[in-house]
Design a protein around this nucleic acid. Structure first.
Lengths: 156, 156
DNA sequence: TATTGTTATACTCTATAACTATA
DNA sequence: TATAGTTATAGAGTATAACAATA
């Protein structure tokens, strides 16, 4: 081919393009709560499995424990989560949301819904349902953990 | 754990999750050609608009010119692209693919098709077409430039 | 003086490795 | 000796700012 025709792009590239765009838009929105996307994902994980050890959280998110420590540090300093030592095995730090953290989760939920509406504004109800169905099918086939962003995964 | 219900996730999050997954999978595949995704995107841009100045390419991709210079440097050293000075205005460096670069584009196309098939393996033909349609609709509404990955965009 | 390209520098994020404490 | 957590260090990727060449 010489040029002039726009190079045909596959659906997988469309997915990457839209996924990156959605991630950037979400980062901007959640930034108004002074949160980064990794922090938000960790808060969600803690809310879904309160009292988990940091090792367990690292395992769930697929990230090195060292990164998790730094993330928990930041959230703890802001009073959103707390570490509780396990009296039976004093090596373990169970991570819990504080009341402030729980309250913030509600805000995060609101922001997430606004984000969802904004990104999918072009679709009507039926189309949204159909898209969700197709995406869920692909996600399951690709082995993605529901609710866990693959960006935590160490790749090399 | 107390809660048993998986936290409900919006379609926009599914998009982000799948988009990141697809990007990682593509990076792994294209890495076998010793290319990074940003390099691949730049090659595509050059192939689509040969002879563009570096400023024009930076503008198209939405990236600082300084980053583009570094990317072109890497591709030029490998003999995939070349800079040609414009005799009329010697400030401009028109960027072109070399023969090796053109040949590599064919390999990239093959890898991209394999990638597409792998990511969408769960869907039949009709479903693929429907998904593509819905994604294209959302992408257009969100103002994405066709064929350009938003990851080049400077955000702050 | 304005524009294209380049180089130098700094910053952010993340991973790897070494270390402490508990078991 | 093995495990949970932590600290220290280094690397990749990118942006910001200063500079050089040409117009």
């Amino acid at each position: 081919m010489t040029s002039s025709d726009p190079p045909p792009v596959g659906s997988a590239f469309l997915l990457t393009q839209l996924g990156t765009h959605a991630a950037q838009a979400f980062a901007a929105r959640i930034g108004e709560l002074d949160l980064t996307p990794p922090q938000t994902g960790l808060l969600r994980a803690i809310a879904g499995a309160p009292g988990s050890s940091q090792q367990a959280l690292a395992e769930l998110l697929g990230t090195p424990a060292t990164r998790l420590v730094a993330l928990v540090d930041g959230l703890e300093q802001r009073g959103l989560v707390e570490r509780r030592r396990n009296p039976t095995d004093r090596r373990l730090h169970a991570v819990h949301l504080t009341d402030a953290g729980t309250a913030l989760m509600a805000d995060i939920g609101r922001v997430a819904r606004q984000h969802d509406d904004a990104v999918l504004a072009a679709l009507d109800g039926d189309e949204k349902a159909r898209l969700r169905e197709l995406l869920a099918k692909v996600a399951a086939d690709q082995g993605l953990t529901p609710g866990v962003h693959p960006g935590y995964k160490n790749l090399r």
